[in-house]
Design a protein around this nucleic acid. Structure first.
Lengths: 334, 334
DNA sequence: TATCAATATGACAGCGCTATCATATGGCGT
DNA sequence: ACGCCATATGATAGCGCTGTCATATTGATA
């Protein structure tokens, strides 16, 4: 059924090696032969066998994307971005869910590499910060790029956004609206972004000369129900916050639900903001003011770094954006 | 770095072929040798090269999942389900986004197969109903299983839920609550499930002796904004519906937003229901009454069919479930 | 014209496995 | 004792490519 290089070389009237040269865009092929070969390839609708290429050559034309994230939206955007860049490069993508906290993560990654011989790996947060994983990749000399790493910044190329500045911007925006008691729901403890967003929140308070009140900060885990729990605690305070900043949209949705359940009107009685600008943010009522995290673009850029600058360590930082919607307003005069 | 069968055979003191036999669980290997080989494999942490296996053998230990769906939640569940089954089988999964309406879909699938030699393919709706794709797979003799196919039911094995019955159940539930004017938002025209859900709605009306009113049915596209548009039209009617059934949760979210925007209270002034029970459904306010579609289980079962019953055509139908939440109530007395 | 590097092409081995076929061993019936 | 089949193992070829090295064929330079 499927044709081989041999078939192509027969039709084009050249050696197999020359066909191989054309396929790999190597130098030293004359224009004339290249055209002949390309015509033969098109005629047979020939596709080289990835397996044979891996076995014979050094490249596999495959990269792996390793992720462990419980937000389907986030994963989807990451996949889409990396995918788009891979298509351009003619490289296949192996998507690999995993568990960043698993003790066998390194072994799994090792197995993946042994089995598939991927040319490179893209790590998305929080796998970016699993020491075992990084060691395994380095031991094998596999190039890798990290998306939003939290630790060992200079250990590999990476793409990221400025979480600290984004949280600072959002907090400053709330302060500018007149809020003085601002609640904060922290993200999952595994993710370094959680710390950074918390730090940005504190920095903004500090710049504005507002005191940091630990009671206004609640832990969360990036999921809806932890947002609900945190919202309940914050709104039960004697002096409840007039605005709540959740470290992602899912948790903000939880806060919103708690407010509705208590018969509060958002944003009249309470302003709520999120982080990420997932699809969820605009599908809630009221639509959520949030930080647009350029997830898809980060993923696209990460794949680009992997292909372009295999050797040197490069960091690319992409801009974020405040998305102002209807969930925020000034505090009620009281 | 990575070890080979040769290394294993040297340690175990047997031939390469015997090691291969153990790896492939072939017959005619004595217990004793099998243990020796397994110990050597463990010692070297040996993983056979997928590439070499593909090249030499008939199997590739890889399957592909082809999808084209704009709901990240749905994709995520499909991926997770198929993935889980693949892990059990020790098979690698290639996830392949695609465009069901693209004229080059068949060529893309052909290319994928030529390049990667996948052992089988899982098609998720609506790629399930792309004639070119099915022909390509059959031409190449690649086994495939479809998830929720809409056409050519007996053409391949498949897993599905009963969309007609589910929509009937939900509509009957609304009627039982006392609703007589029930709006319906149809799904994307590409998906056969859209027709089936509409038919279930009509069948329930019919059984209850209620007339089918075309003006209460609006087209949609499975996304939030088409839900908003449909909701606006329905609520602008002189005799607006007292309940709206959207063919998926995203569109129900759109209807909910329109209702909020008009200052209506859900479910007091309007009941709203969705379909799928994605995470979104429980994160909205009020939480959405919906049909739980067992997406993850469908995907898991689909992979199972691919591995188990490669030859015969088997259909597996999984049960759905009405999830009653706070977005429904009886109509207001008027 | 001779010389050399840059360009262009091909012959052939071998990547790490599995398929095929050959061979060896043991137990059972006659 | 002999054949015969089920069981158990190995030797060898080759899957479809690419790497290496050898071999033209140019054009520029001395």
């Amino acid at each position: 059924m499927a044709s081989t290089i041999k078939d192509v070389s027969a039709i084009a009237g050249v050696s197999m090696k020359t066909v191989s040269r054309v396929l790999n865009k190597e130098r030293y092929v004359s224009e004339k032969t290249r055209l002949r070969v390309e015509r033969a390839v098109a005629e047979l609708n020939f596709r080289p066998s990835v397996a044979a290429r891996i076995l014979a050559g050094k490249r596999s034309y495959q990269i792996a994307l390793i992720y462990d994230n419980h937000s389907p939206h986030y994963i989807h955007q990451i996949q889409t971005g990396v995918w788009a860049r891979c298509i351009e490069e003619g490289v296949r993508l192996l998507a690999q869910p995993s568990d960043a906290a698993s003790p066998i993560l390194a072994r799994e990654i090792g197995g993946l590499i042994d089995q598939t011989q991927v040319d490179g790996v893209i790590l998305s947060s929080p796998v970016t910060d699993a020491p075992g994983a990084l060691e395994e990749l380095e031991k094998r000399g596999i190039p890798y790029v990290r998306i939003s790493p939290g630790t060992d910044y200079d250990r590999s190329s990476s793409v990221s956004m400025d979480d600290v500045q984004a949280a600072d911007d959002m907090t400053s925006h709330l302060i500018a609206l007149g809020h003085r008691r601002i609640g904060f729901v922290v993200g999952h403890a595994n993710h370094t972004a959680s710390d950074q967003r918390l730090f940005g929140y504190r920095r903004a308070l500090d710049k504005a000369g507002l005191a940091f009140e630990p009671k206004y900060v609640r832990p969360g885990a990036f999921d809806f129900s932890s947002g609900e729990a945190a919202g309940d605690v914050l709104l039960d305070l004697a002096q409840p916050p007039t605005a709540i900043f959740a470290s992602n949209d899912d948790m903000a949705a939880g806060v919103l639900t708690v407010a509705h359940r208590r018969g509060m009107s958002v944003p009249r009685d309470l302003s709520v903001v999120g982080f990420d600008d997932t699809a969820l943010a605009s599908q809630l009522w009221p639509p959520l003011t949030t930080v647009r995290q350029p997830t898809r673009d980060l993923a696209y850029a990460a794949a680009g770094l992997l292909f372009d600058a295999a050797d040197e360590v490069v960091h690319r930082r992409l801009p974020h954006e405040l998305v102002l919607r209807a969930s925020t307003a000034g505090p009620r005069k009281s």
